[in-house]
Design a protein around this nucleic acid. Structure first.
Lengths: 352, 352
DNA sequence: TTCGCTTGCACAATCGATGGTGCAGAAACT
DNA sequence: AGTTTCTGCACCATCGATTGTGCAAGCGAA
C-alpha cells in the first residue's frame, strides 16, 4: 500500500531513473543486452531499479511490436468433461514449461463459433493454436492460414493441417472385442445383444462404428444393421435414444458400446430413478476414460486416449517446418473395469 | 487462397482505400462513428471495404491504447475435475455473452504460481480476474490491487476482496446429517464409524470439518477426536490415508465424509484391485458433485455447489463500485445417490 | 453580406516496447 | 600521430488503434 494505485512502471520511467535510454532499458529487461553490448554494470543498475519499482513488461505493447503475443491457444469443444479437461491440464503444463501463456477456450462444437473463436484469438496475435475436436477443422484452418498462424488438429482430423488423433479404429476394435470376451462361453453374447450408442457423423465416430461392425462380424459372425444409435454428443439426446430403445424392446441390450463419456452421461440419466437391478447384468464399453465411470455397479470397460502423447506429438509437429498435411495416430489404451488411473493432476505437488 | 499469406488489413490500408483518414476509419469500425458525426455514407463505404478485405481489429493495439484488453481471466486450481471444469464452462458462457474473451488458466494451488499467473494476466491488461479456490487469495489480491485490476474470490474467501463461496458449513451439515440418516434405526451409525477424509487447512475445509463435528455430536451424541484425516487435495495422499486407516483397523469405516471429489478419487484408487464386496456396506458423502460418482456401487450422497449462482453473483459484484470486502454465501444442494443432473453443457445445442 | 452554428472530418499525440542504425570515445595497431 | 577497430549506448521509426482538438465548408438567420 505504499503507493496508491500508481500506474505501472514503464521502460521510460526506468530510463529517467537510470539515466539510460529507453532502448537500453528495454534490451536489459528482455535479455538481449549482451547482444547489444550493454555494459554489465549498466544492466545491473537497471535490473535493480526494475526490481525496486516492480517493473513488469507490458505484454500487449511487446506483442504489438513483435506481432506475436506469447499466448498459445487451445480450442476445446467443451470444458466440462474429463477427457477435455485432462487435455487442458496437460496442455497447460507443456505451454508453461515453454515460458508461454496458455489460453484455453471452448467453442461448443459449433462451426461458426469455432471460426469466430479462432479469429478472436488471432486478433490477440496468439502464436499457435491447438484445435481439439473441432466440428469443422478445415474452416478453422482457413482462418488460421489467412493470418499465417501455426495450428494443428487434435482428436478430430482435418484435411488441411497436420492432425494428431487417437487410433479410433483400433481403440474401438479392442473395446468391442473386450466387451464380447467379457461374456464367457456359457452364455455368450449374441450379435443382436450389443448396441452402439452415441456419436455423430465425424471421423472419430465413423472409425469407431466401422470397427464396431467389423469386430462384431468377425467375432459374432453377424451384425444386424440396426446396431447403431447415433445420438450426437449430448447427454439428453442419448438419454432419449435409450428411452426409445427401451420403449421398443422392453429392456436394454445386454451389452453397450458407448461412443464417449458424454454419451455415457445419457446412460446415467436413463439409470436415474430406475431400479439398480435393471442394470445388474449390463456390460458397457465406453470410448473415453473417466475414473468414476470405471467404478459403476456393472462392468465398464473404457478406452483411454493417450492425451499426454497426443499433446506431445502436437507440440513437436507445430514447431516443425510445414509439410503436406498428415494424420498421426496415437494408440489408445484399454482400461479394465474398476481402474483408477493417474492423471495430469498427479504431477502437481500437494501439501497434506 | 486468393492472397498469399498477405498481412492483415489495418485501418491505414482502409484509410488509403477509402480516402478517409485513419481516425475516421477507426471510428467507423469500432462503432463510435455516430458520436463523431461521421456521415452515414462514409461509414457504409468503409464498412464495405472492411468486409471486402476481411479487416479484423488488432486487439493488442487496441488494448495497448485503451490499456485494457477485453480479456477476462478465470484462475482455477486445476482443470481436470468436474467442479472446476463446470466452473470454467459456466464462466465462459457469461463472458461471451458480454462480448469479451474468456481466458482460463490454472495455478495448481501453489501460492507462488498463483501470484505469477495473476501477474502474467495483468501484463496482458486483462479487465477482470476471477480467482477460484486460491490457496493464497490475499497474495493474489496484492498483485491485482497494485495494478488496479478488479478481482473477486470464488470458492475460497480472501480478506481483502469480495468473496463468493459455497455455504460450506450448511452443506457439510446437510451432508453429515444425510449420511447418518441413511442408516436406519435397526442398525444405526455409531460415532466411531463415521470418518472424514481429505481437506487442508483452508477456509472451506475448516467449515466443513466444523459442521461435521457439530452434526456428529448433535445427532450421534459424541464425536471421537480422531474422526478427521486431512489429506490435502491429492488423490494419492488420500489413498495413503485410506491405506493407513485400513492397516490400523483392518477395515474401512461404515461411513465416509469425503471432502471433495478429488479426494474421492483417492477412494477409487483404494478400491482398485480390492474386491467389490469390501465396499458393499459403505455409505459415502462427498462434498462436490460428479455425475459418475453419484452412481457408484454404494450409496454416494453428494453436495453440489451452485456454480451458476456463484458465477452470476461474482459478475454482479465485480461490476459494482468497490466497498469493504464481504463474503457471500451461496447455498449448495444435497444430491441423493444415483442422480444425473443437468450441467452447463446442457445449454449447448447439439445435432443428433 | 456577415455572423454563428452545425456538419463532417483530418491531424497528431499517445499507449509501451522493440530493433536497425549511427556515432562518439576509447583502445589497439601501424 | 594517424588509422582502424571495438565498446557502449542513444536515436528514432514502428507496431495498429484511439481520442482530444481543430478547422473548413455549408447553411440559416439577421
Amino acid at each position: 500500500m505504499d503507493q496508491r494505485v500508481k500506474k505501472k512502471a514503464t521502460i521510460y520511467d526506468l530510463s529517467l531513473l537510470s539515466g539510460s535510454s529507453p532502448s537500453t532499458v528495454s534490451a536489459v529487461l528482455n535479455g538481449t543486452w549482451r547482444k547489444r553490448r550493454i555494459k554489465e554494470s549498466t544492466a545491473q543498475t537497471i535490473l535493480g531499479l526494475a526490481e525496486l519499482h516492480q517493473y513488469t513488461t507490458n505484454l500487449q505493447a511487446r506483442g504489438l511490436r513483435r506481432s506475436r503475443s506469447g499466448l498459445v491457444g487451445l480450442m476445446l469443444p467443451v470444458h466440462d468433461n474429463r477427457y477435455f479437461s485432462s487435455m487442458a491440464q496437460t496442455f497447460e503444463g507443456h505451454v508453461r514449461s515453454r515460458g508461454q501463456c496458455p489460453v484455453v477456450v471452448s467453442a461448443s462444437r459449433d462451426p461458426e463459433e469455432e471460426r469466430r473463436t479462432a479469429e478472436t484469438l488471432i486478433s490477440y496475435s496468439i502464436d499457435q493454436l491447438f484445435i481439439v475436436g473441432a466440428t469443422d477443422p478445415d474452416g478453422v484452418h482457413e482462418v488460421c492460414e489467412l493470418a499465417g498462424l501455426r495450428h494443428i488438429n487434435i482428436d478430430l482430423p482435418g484435411a488441411k493441417a497436420h492432425s494428431v488423433i487417437s487410433d479410433n479404429y483400433e481403440g474401438a476394435r479392442m473395446l468391442t472385442e473386450a466387451i464380447i470376451h467379457h461374456f464367457g462361453n456359457d452364455n455368450p453374447l449374441r450379435p443382436d445383444e450389443l448396441f452402439l450408442f452415441g456419436g455423430r457423423n465425424d471421423h472419430a465416430s465413423r472409425e469407431r462404428i466401422a470397427a464396431f461392425h467389423a469386430t462384431k462380424k468377425a467375432l459374432l459372425g453377424a451384425d444386424p444393421e440396426d446396431g447403431v444409435q447415433s445420438s450426437g454428443y449430448s447427454p439428453d439426446i442419448t438419454l432419449r435414444a435409450f428411452e426409445a430403445f427401451y420403449q421398443r424392446h422392453g429392456k436394454l441390450p445386454r451389452a453397450l458400446f458407448i461412443n464417449s463419456s458424454i454419451n455415457m452421461e445419457g446412460l446415467l440419466r436413463f439409470m436415474a430413478g430406475r431400479p439398480a437391478e435393471m442394470f445388474s447384468e449390463l456390460v458397457v464399453g465406453c470410448y473415453d476414460y473417466d475414473p468414476f465411470g470405471s467404478f459403476l455397479p456393472f462392468p465398464v470397460i473404457m478406452v483411454r486416449q493417450n492425451v499426454e502423447a497426443m499433446i506431445t506429438k502436437a507440440f513437436e509437429l507445430i514447431d516443425e517446418p510445414p509439410t503436406a498435411p498428415q494424420t498421426f495416430l496415437i494408440a489408445p489404451e484399454l482400461i479394465q473395469p474398476r481402474s483408477a488411473l493417474k492423471g495430469p493432476l498427479d504431477t502437481l505437488k500437494d501439501i497434506a
